[in-house]
Design a protein around this nucleic acid. Sequence first.
RNA 1: GGGCGGAUAGCUCAGGGGUAGAGCGUCGCCCUUACAAGGCGAGGGUCACAGGUUCGAAGCCUGUUCCGCCCA
Length: 1097
Amino acid sequence: MQNPNENEKAPELAKGYEHREVEARWYPFWQERGYFHGDEHDRTRPPFSIVLPPPNVTGSLHLGHALTATLQDVLVRWKKMSGFNTLWLPGTDHAGIATQMIVERELKKTEKVSRHDLGREEFLRRVWIWKERFGSRIGQQHHALGASLDWQRERFTMDEGLSRAVREVFVRLYEEGLIYREKKLINWCPDCRTALSDLEVEHEEAHRGELWSFAYPLVEPAQGPAGTITEIVVATTRPETMLGDTAVAVHPDDERYRDLVGRKVRHPILGREIPIVADAILVDPKFGTGAVKVTPAHDFNDFEVGKRHGLELVTVIDVDGRMNANAGPLAGLDRFEARKEVKRLLAEKGLDRGTQPHVLPLGRCQRSQTVLEPMLSDQWYVKIEPLARPAIEAVEQGKTRFIPEQWTNTYMAWMRNIHDWCISRQLWWGHQIPAWYCPDGHVTVARTTPSACATCGKPELRQDEDVLDTWFSSALWPFSTMGWPDQTDTLRTFYPTSVMETGHDIIFFWVARMMMMGLHFMGEVPFRTVYLHPMVRDEKGQKMSKTKGNVIDPLVVTEKYGADALRFTLAALTAQGRDIKLSDQRIEGYRAFANKLWNASRFALMNLAGHEERGEDVSTLAASPAERWILARLQRTVNETVAALEAFRFNDAANAVYAFVWHELCDWYIELAKEALYGEDLALKHATQAVLVRCLETSYRLLHPFMPFITEELWHVLRTQVKAQAWPDSILAAAYPQTGPVDEAAERSFGPVLGIIDAIRNIRGEMGIPFKVKLGVQAKVEIAVADQATHDLLLAGELARIQRVAGVEGVNVTLAAATPPAPQSAVGVGPGFEVRVPLAGVIDLAAETARVDKEIAKVEQDLAGIERKLQNPSFVQKAPPEVVEKDRARAEELREKRGKLDAHRAMLSGSEANPARRDSMENQNEQKPSVEVPAEAAPAPAPAPAPVEQQEAPSPVVQTAEKIVAAGAEAAQSAIEAVKSGVEAMVEKAKSVARAPAAAKPARKAAAKKKPAARKAAARKPAKAAVKAAVKKAAPRKAAKAAAKAAPKKGAKKAAPKRVVAKRAARKPARKPARKPARKPAARKAPARRAARKGKR
RNA sequence: GGGCGGAUAGCUCAGGGGUAGAGCGUCGCCCUUACAAGGCGAGGGUCACAGGUUCGAAGCCUGUUCCGCCCA
C-alpha cells in the first residue's frame, strides 16, 4: 500500500489534531505491509510472542478489553521496534454458556422457539450463524484501537484445528487416568440447566435470609436428662430440602440427645422414618438446638455425612428447580414455592417452631445470578493434583514469574488446595465430549467417532451429549493456536510465549489451567511472565457491568477522544496494585497531550524551512548549552521509559514521555529555541533545527507504542519535510530509542539559565506584571552569577534566550556574589545566581516584602531541617557519607540564598521605614535617569549581606540603597509612564496586599490548627514542630525566637539562631553552587516532572 | 474463618528509608504569531491512628480502625 502521505508536497498541519481523520488512515497501511505478521521461519531475531486472551465471540469489547489490547500492543510494538520477531496472536472464545444463553434468548424472542424445539443440529447451525454475524465486531474494535494483531493467525476455539487439540487432550488425559466420570454433588444452575465448576460460583458473602425451626416427632418418645422427649427440633435456611432429609444428626457428646442416637423420627409430610445419627464433624452442639437435619442429595456437608453414615440419597429437586416426584404432595412446585408450602404444611401440623433472621452465605451462578442448587449427578472431572504439582514447581523454580509479584501467593494458595475440575456442561454449544456409550454402559473415549464399543464391540453407540467447559479449550490456547498437536514451526519459534497479559480476575480460570496444560502437553511453561493488570472501573469505582448499565464501548471513546488518547490514558493509569478508575476528564487530558504533540510538531514544521536531515550527529552539532541540555533530558527520558517498560511499569513509562514532551520540550526548549530559529546566526539555527527534529522524532518513536496513530502520522510529515530518506517508511519499522549515558554536565550547567528564568517569571507572576510589559526597559535587570562558566555561558548567547522567554529587554550580567542593592526592585535568588528586577515606581513594597518573606520562610524551614540533621553527631557518623555531603552542600546553598534574601529584605524594610521618600522621589525630576551598572564596573563582590544587628543603625546596605533611590527617581517616573497600561491591575493588587498583609493568612491558618495536636507533635519532635509552627506564622524573625523559646534546649540549639547563620553566610559568600546543583536529577527516581515543573535544575 | 491489597493535596492517584509528587480541580495574570485542547505564576499535605526499629520512617516491624477483592 502506498504511503498515504507520499503525495503531499509541503505538509501543512491543521491547527488542531483531528484524530478521526488521522486514525482512519494508518491501520490498513500497517496491515497491508505485513508489519503485524510474526515470521515463524525467522530465527535471526529473538522472538517475542503474546497470545491475546480470547474474548467471547458474541460479545463486544469493553474497556477491560481495551486495556488488554493497549498494554499488549505497547509491549508488542515496543519489542518489534527493539528488533524482536514479534507475534501477537488474536482469536475468540466460543463461550459456551454465555453464547448459548444469548442465542436461546434471541430465538425465544424472535421465533418463540426453544432450542429443544429446534433440535441440537439446527440449534447449533443457528449459533454459528450468530457467531458469524456478530463475531466481526471484536475485530473492528481491535482495529480502532490500533492493535497490531497478526490477523492471518486468528483463531477460534471451535475451529477444526483447535477442536482437534481439545479431543487430543481429552483422550490423552483419559488414557492417563487423569479424566474420569463420577456421580457427585455439583453446583447446578437451574436457570442455565448445567453443572458448573467451583470457580463459576459467586459467593454472596452475607445474604440476609432466615433460619426456620421445626420439630421432627420421634417415632417413639424417649427419656432425656430433663424428662420425656417427643420431638427433636432442627433449624434450616432451606425448608424445602426437608423433603429430601434422610437423617437427623446430633453431636455424639451431647447429653441432651445421647439416648436418641439410633432412634428414629417420622417425616411429617412424607411419613418415612428417619434415623438419628451422631456426627461430630457436622454438628456444632452450641448452635441452635444442637440437632441438624441431613439432606445428603442437596447439601455438600450433608453429602459427606451421608457417606459417613451410609445414608440414603433422595433427590427432591429437578434440573429446572422444581420439586420432583420424591417430594410427594409438593411435586411440581418451584423450589421457592415449595419452601413456603413446607412451612405452611408444618405450621398446620403444629410443628413450626419459629423463624429468626439469619445471615448466610449464598452461592449464585456467575452467569445468571441464579441461586445455585447442589445437585447429585454424573459428570466428567479432571484429576487435578498431578497436573497442579508441576505447575507449582515451575513457578517455584522461577520458570514463570508473576507481575505484580503478590499474585504468586494467590496462585500458589489456590494450586495447593485445588479440587478436581468438573469439566462437563449440560449444553449444546461447545466441544462435545468424545465419549461414547454402548447399550451395556461401557464407555469408549476416542479421537474420532468409533464404530464399535471398545469393550464389548457392540456397534450401537451413543455419544455423550454434554460438552466441555469452555475453559477446557482455552487452557490449551497458547499451543492449540499454534498448530498443536502438530509440531509446527510456529510452535518451535513462538512457544513458550513471552508474556501472558490479562486481568487478575481470571488467574484461576485461565492462567493456572494454561500452566497445567502447557506443562503437561508441551513439557514447558506456556509463558515466561504473567503480567496481571488491574480492573477497569467507572469513575465512581464501580465494576462495569451490563446490569449497572455503566459498560462503555471503546469505540464510543475512540470516536470521541481518539484511540491514542484512550490508549495513553489506560497506560498512564496502569500502576501496579490498584484498580483503574476511568473518567472522561482523564481521557480529555491526554487528548490534550496528543494535541500538544501535534502543535509542537506544527511549530517545528513552520520553522524548518531549508533544513534537511543529513544524518549528522546532533550531539556534535549542538554545542550550545540549551541544545546540550535538552538532548541530555531526552536521553534521560529514553532511559526512564525503557527501564519502566522492561519492568512493566506502564504508568511510569507513559508519564516519563509525557513529562518530557510537555514540560521540557514544549514548555522549555521550544521557547528557548525561538531565539535561534528566528535569528540570523545560520549555524546556530541549523543546529537548533537539527536538535528540534531529533527531539521530536525521538519522542514519536518513544511514544509510538502508546500512541501509534498520531506518531505514525507525524513521523511521515516530518520525514517528508526534512527529506529524511534514511528514516524507515513507517515508524513501526524504526528502531526504538536506545538507552545510553546522560550528559549530566549539560544538565547541571544549564541549571542557572532555567533558574534565572524561573526567578523572573516568579516575580512577574507574584507582582502581577503582564508579559507584554517588558522588564529592564528603564533600569536594567541585573543578573549576578557566581561562577565564570555560567557568566560566559550567558554572554555567549543564553542571555538572549532568557530575555526572550522571560520578557526582558535591558539586562546586565555581572560575575559577582550578588547584584547591587536597589530598593525599587524585586529580587530572585537561586543556586549560583541572583536576579534583580527593577520595578521603579511599580514596586509595591508590601507586595515585595511579602514575597520575599514567603521565600525566606521556605528557606528557613528547609535549612532548619537540614541543620538539625547536620548537628546531630550520630547522623554525621552513621549516615552514608554521600548523604551527609549532599546535605552539607544543600545547607550551604540555602544559607547563601537566605543571606541574599535577608539583605534584600533588610533593604526593603529600610525603605519601608521611610515611605515619604517614595513620594518625594516622584518630584525629583532632575536626577540622572540611569542606575546602570555595567558588568565590568562591578567585579568585586557586593557588600556582604547585612547582619541583623545593623538594622538598628543605618546599614551600609541601606545607605547604598538610599543613594540609588535618589539616583533612580527619574527612572521611576518614566517607568511609570512606560508601564502605565499594565500598572492598574498591579496597583489594585498592591492595595489588596497592603490591606491584608501576607502574614495574616498563614497566621490565621496557624490559629485554626488544633492546638493540642500541635503540642503533641511538638512534644514528640520539638525542633521540627517548633520550626514548622514558626514558619506558619510567616514572621521569620519572631518565629525563630519563638521556636528557640518553645523548644527544649536541644531544639533551641538546633534552630540555629539567625544571627549566627547570617554571619556565617557573610563570611563565605562566594561558594560556587554551580558545582552542586539544587537538584541532581540522576539522584532522584523521577526528577523530570518535578524538576521540569519547577524549572530548578 | 483464612489470605491479599488499599488509606498520601479538594478529587483521582504515583512514590516505597535520605529536601512530600503528578494529573484534574481552585486562585491570580495573560489571546506572548505551535497550541485557550494554550501560557505564566500561586495556593493547597499531623502521608488513617497508636506504638516500635533507625542517625533518619509516608515508606520497615507490631497492633488498631475503616474500605476493597479473593478463597473456604
